[in-house]
């Protein structure tokens, strides 16, 4: 059984990297606007995890303070992303990436 004391910085960073990659792949392959927004949030939160882990490892509060800033910015980003998604929905009658074909070349 895995005990709490066996969990080192490496585990946290690995988890954070895995979550970040899942988010990244999500942005790249998913076709729904809302899911893309969720994936971006996942990436930001993966980074938050890394900040907290590093902060705990170094016994510094700085990383945890940064996380609050990031959370605030992520909230602003989500608000703007959803607002854009709504305006896209009104114009295109859908939130699928495949609708976006006006601009290419």
């Amino acid at each position: 059984m895995l005990e709490l004391s066996n969990i080192t910085l490496g585990h946290f960073i690995l988890l954070s990297c895995v979550l970040f990659t899942i988010g990244m792949v999500g942005v790249l392959v998913r076709r729904n606007v809302i899911v893309i927004l969720m994936s971006i949030e996942l990436m930001l939160n993966a980074v938050n995890l890394a900040f907290v882990a590093f902060s705990r490892h170094h016994n510094l509060a700085d990383g945890q303070v940064i996380v609050f800033f990031v959370m605030a910015i992520a909230a602003a980003e989500a608000a703007i992303g959803l607002a854009i998604a709504i305006s896209v929905f009104r114009k295109f009658n859908g939130v699928e990436i495949r609708l976006f074909e006006n601009l290419k070349g």
Partner: peptide
């Protein structure tokens, strides 16, 4: 992500 690792 970069900033987190630089901080780390």
């Amino acid at each position: 992500f970069g900033i987190a690792f630089i901080f780390g």
